[in-house]
Amino acid sequence: MKRVYLVLIVFVTLFFISSCELVSSTTEKTTTENKTIEYVGVKISILDNFINDPLVDYYYIDGEKGLYIYDVSVKEYQDDSGAQVIEHEINYHLTPKYNCFYITTLIRENGDLKELDSSTATCTDFMAKFSHSIGYGYKDSKVNEKIIFKVNFSFMPNFISYEVIEYDQSHNKLVSKTITLDNISDEYIIQQDTAYCKIIYQYLEGEVSQSDVKIIDHKDIINGYTERFYTLTENDERAFYIIQFKVEPTNS
């Protein structure tokens, strides 16, 4: 009888030990699997209403980005759960023709670049603004971090003009010049004694006239400041102009 007791106790103990091991090994596997995934960026696809032939741009967290991504900001903060979040906010333009969009996460898994999951394609009426976000948490027990890709979509503006007003160190207006599509060139020369300039960018958002103002220092221009203006063409295609700002050369 005692033998039967012993055999049963051994069996029950073995059962508990093996189930514990199973649980432990499964957890380790998940952790190892998650560790190998690295979120490297996002692919932005815009399409026409027939959902074919998408125009594609890529954004990588190392700073490399497509030409039609017009603004990026990266924020770091802690969320409600205490996780350290890195949020990449990417601004992108739709056009009246290409008014549908979706985003796809790019990952590197065991060294290979792959596409993870995509948001569903969304179409929007003219002038509506949309945001799509995809967020991931690193599930390593030691690292409580999240990465979020937030893409804001708005419609491409119609460029009207940009005006450059130059000031000296005493804030006297030296000169001002307005550039439209008729006289636009790929560089803008400021005077040597210009301390700073106001750049007033005027554009149409739908039917509404808007303007943005920037202050640019002489030093920024010496350091190779460039401005990029986006616009819709007459055929509703996308276009942009890159303007290199320079200081006029000395006579000597």
């Binding site: 007003i165 000031y167 804030h171 006297n172 207006k173 001002s176 106001k198």
Partner: peptide, 14 residues
């Protein structure tokens, strides 16, 4: 310095 500009972007006051 606080520099005020008028509607023509000329210096108004410092």
């Amino acid at each position: 310095e606080i520099v005020e500009f008028d509607k023509h972007d000329n210096k108004l006051k410092i």
